[in-house]
Design a protein around this nucleic acid. Structure first.
Lengths: 344, 344
DNA sequence: TTGAAAGCGCTAACAG
DNA sequence: CTGTTAGCGCTTTCAA
């Protein structure tokens, strides 16, 4: 590797001190009263020598790395990859890089990743956490780590969070399905169900149908382990089949699960929505391409990302973080073919 | 922020020198002959004080950051997000973090991102580059940056690369479509077409049909700008319609474009494959869920990622990089409903 | 078996 | 207007 040029090299080649070069480079020349002529010479030489500051040394010295961390359960999940993309754009526009980590919903892995990132002195962290409560989260907050929680939040959380109105979204789904004449519901949640997103979706849905006088026995809520989506959905449908009680509506609590449900119903030649209506939390572009197209609760990806980024920047700027803001964004029900039993 | 504990703090609290603590921490205690007793005390205290080394300082000192860079055109594209996920896993298993950047196929942005990453002293780089030739790439190689090119490669490239047999994949598509009785082909490539992936797919396809005696006028190759997929596809289909010459087969050269083609044909109520057969380069899970299901050339994501990672590690270990390896992995044609005109 | 000290490249008081 | 200097936290040579 061709020896890297350091600030000292530039300074030496000009017969100036590192200070001057540093100041010029960082745009502080004027405020320190460096002569225009010197500035010009320095800038010119920096260019000539193709000098690039060592960001590591800079970060080491200043404590700022201009790097942000993003932790999600799975970056290959379309929902998170779209959020990641939005955040990455915002970060880039603001001179930041983004380190992305996938947890597979494993609490331990998540903690290790957080520590790993903190060791690297990242300036801030955006996280979709799988933790069971806010203890660990609040420890981070107390330690002064700028952090924003997305997608999932916790009661008692001291850090800001951005999530959507899961309960309302699930309520809309319940109302919609009942409106379509459905009476026997099967819900697939992804584990761990202690996550606020899941918990709220489950509650919003069950409360609504219970209030309407329908029953919802425990075995109608299937918890799908992160890495066993296919098996779990298959077994569950088999169970229903064997017990002679297929549902007339299935609610998939995230896009991956719903896609798998569609896949398996298709394999079994079960007609959707006639025999079973299907609806998803999380909308995906391809839900519009399937046959039938898949109804879904859409989340405002752009807003989620922008809000989270803004909240993070705020925290990074002023150390004094007062009351934590908990933003809850609205969702929209997109009724497509998979849930429309009646031609309305 | 509670004051961070440094190595010096640990050393001081034990009345030992930083040297000893450092050695123990890094597992070099035995080879330096530190007594077992001291080792125990140090380890214990490190734990007690909850000491975490500052990775920035470490990296600054050693030149190793244990961070890798990944540059792709768009992390929210399922193809790249799956590769990213695989690479991230491999990185994590080996004690590395991964910084991900999206270029939107913009050469300038790509170069800036590379420089940004190099400034940060990343240990290695995996890149799906949009460059027109290998000049810039080889400069990096000459500068000693461990780097592996994926997805796209260049003639004359000095760095290792991992790509797939695009030409063969496209040839299979051509043969398949002709076998289905198609005679009038429309190809959507994404720009810039100088990219090896696009170039090879185009060549593989056109050569095969030309050899078979079909013609392929220039206007049957539509170049789709990265950020104008929808408009371009729409306009192109409109043109065909108006000129009274709709194709009987469409080949989408990546998954995003093909999805959009499916979407628009569906909107126009054109029957697939009867009126127009559709096939894609890049397979996606949801291609199996659409109606009709979408035929595609599948790429071995896992192998691509693993090979690239391995090649990168190799480079990072031994500075002497001899001949560059150019791995070309096989692809498979997955014929689904969208391209099967004959019931075979 | 352990310690002292130099130095990675940079920034920021402080001095002139 | 510009230079000197100290030091961020860590590793590593050399010395004891």
């Amino acid at each position: 590797m061709a020896k890297k040029i350091s600030l000292a090299d530039v300074a030496a080649s000009l017969g100036l001190s590192k200070t001057v070069v540093s100041m010029v480079k960082n745009g502080k020349a004027d405020s320190y009263g460096i002569s225009k002529e010197t500035q010009r010479r320095v800038l010119e030489r920096i260019d000539e020598m193709n000098y690039r500051p060592n960001a590591l040394a800079q970060g080491f010295r200043t404590g700022k790395t201009h790097t942000l961390g993003l932790i999600v359960s799975d970056i290959s999940n379309g929902f998170y990859s779209r959020i990641a993309r939005k955040l990455e754009d915002l970060a880039w526009q603001n001179g930041y890089n983004m380190v992305i980590c996938s947890t597979d919903e494993q609490v331990e892995k998540e903690q290790k990743q957080i520590e790993f990132l903190l060791d690297r002195q990242i300036d801030g962290l955006i996280i979709s956490s799988s933790q069971a409560d806010c203890n660990y989260a609040n420890k981070l907050m107390d330690a002064g780590v700028p952090i924003v929680f997305i997608d999932r939040t916790f009661p008692g959380l001291k850090s800001p969070s951005v999530s959507v109105n899961n309960e309302e979204g699930a309520r809309l789904v319940a109302l919609h399905l009942m409106d379509q004449g459905c009476t026997d519901f099967l819900v697939f949640a992804n584990s761990p169900v202690h996550m606020s997103s899941m918990d709220q979706r489950i509650r919003g849905f069950t409360n609504t149908i219970l209030e309407a006088g329908f029953c919802f026995p425990p075995n109608r809520l299937v918890v799908v382990p992160f890495s066993q989506v296919e098996e779990t959905v298959r077994n569950s449908l088999n169970d229903c089949w064997q017990s002679g009680r297929m549902p007339d509506a299935i609610f998939g609590l995230n896009n991956v699960i719903t896609a798998e449900v569609m896949n398996q119903l298709k394999n079994r030649s079960i007609s959707i929505p006639e025999e079973i209506a299907v609806i998803s939390f999380d909308d995906m572009a391809f839900f519009n391409l399937t046959q039938p197209s898949v109804s879904a609760v859409g989340q405002p990806i752009k807003q989620i990302s922008e809000t989270a980024f803004q909240l993070l920047i705020q925290q990074m700027n002023k150390h004094s973080t007062g009351e934590a803001v908990h933003v809850q964004l609205p969702v929209t029900l997109i009724a497509r073919e998979s849930s429309l039993k009646k031609s309305s």
